[in-house]
Amino acid sequence: MLDYGSGNLRSAVRAVERAGAEVTLTGDFDAALNADGLLVPGVGAYAACMAGLRAVKGERIIGRRLAGGRPVLGICVGMQVLFERGVEHGVETEGCDEWPGVVERIQAPVVPHMGWNTVDVPTGSTLFDGIEDERFYFVHSYAVRDWTLETNDRTRPPLVTWAEHGGDRFVAAVENGPLTATQFHPEKSGDAGAALLRNWVQSL
């Protein structure tokens, strides 16, 4: 699990350990690069997370892992930073640019989106295998509301899971080869979240 100064990571570490993995919390470049799987957590502001990530060369670790087909899982803001850029309070911040798209404020009557919600899972999902109809725990004000990556059948298209809050639709999860991410917090999502983490750990 990549430690770049983003919040309390103990609950996430424990959840992944319960999923059957041996977890090392590290900000070390080589350790993060060479792990069987890398989990990138994230809480708080997009710009602050990107600054912390760049301080440990996290964007380079992610890029090099993916170039070698090595699994990465982003959670919450750890998912958002994988996109091209984020806009918060009028401030635009460059992300890791693994996927095109903009992280922006949810257009709903009540923000933040906080609590349990269902998700719309595409056919063939490995991450949601056996938990397609479960609810997951979200806490966020920003999301990717428009999926723009087109593969034109040259590569296998990513599997995109959606959710809706207050009439606004946004990306809840992505499965894209070695790169996987969830907007919700699996470590706070009870049995369903535990099953999702098990699915990811077993895929490593």
Score class of each variant (00 low, 15 high):
124 G>M: 01
86 G>T: 09
111 V>K: 01
164 E>H: 02
108 A>L: 04
189 S>F: 08
132 E>Q: 12
116 W>Y: 12
92 E>D: 03
110 V>M: 12
159 L>E: 03
164 E>A: 13
96 C>P: 01
106 I>V: 15
103 V>E: 02
126 T>W: 07
102 V>D: 01
112 P>W: 05
98 E>M: 13
188 K>N: 08
103 V>P: 06
168 D>N: 15
117 N>R: 07
101 G>N: 03
143 A>I: 11
104 E>T: 13
134 E>I: 00
85 R>V: 00
108 A>W: 04
126 T>L: 08
168 D>E: 14
187 E>R: 10
192 A>T: 04
169 R>W: 09
157 P>C: 11
144 V>E: 10
115 G>F: 01
108 A>D: 06
132 E>H: 05
143 A>D: 11
118 T>M: 02
134 E>V: 00
116 W>E: 05
177 G>K: 14
104 E>Y: 01
98 E>C: 13
156 R>T: 15
112 P>C: 06
122 P>A: 02
159 L>S: 11
193 G>C: 13
127 L>Q: 03
140 H>A: 13
108 A>P: 02
168 D>R: 07
91 V>Y: 01
156 R>F: 00
120 D>L: 06
150 E>N: 13
97 D>M: 00
150 E>V: 14
147 W>A: 10
96 C>N: 03
177 G>M: 11
188 K>W: 04
184 F>P: 05
123 T>I: 01
127 L>H: 00
155 T>C: 05
179 L>C: 14
115 G>V: 00
162 W>I: 01
85 R>M: 06
156 R>K: 15
88 E>A: 04
174 V>K: 12
146 D>F: 06
157 P>K: 09
175 E>Q: 09
132 E>T: 15
167 G>Q: 10
135 R>I: 12
163 A>C: 10
114 M>T: 11
175 E>N: 11
152 N>H: 15
137 Y>C: 14
128 F>G: 04
165 H>I: 08
126 T>N: 07
103 V>R: 03
124 G>R: 06
90 G>F: 03
154 R>L: 14
160 V>M: 03
141 S>Q: 09
121 V>D: 02
87 V>N: 01
127 L>A: 05
193 G>Y: 13
104 E>C: 04
118 T>N: 10
93 T>H: 13
154 R>K: 11
92 E>N: 00
173 A>Q: 04
120 D>R: 14
192 A>L: 04
96 C>L: 12
137 Y>L: 14
100 P>A: 04
146 D>R: 15
112 P>R: 10
178 P>D: 10
86 G>K: 09
102 V>H: 02
99 W>L: 07
195 A>N: 00
147 W>L: 13
173 A>K: 05
97 D>L: 00
163 A>T: 14
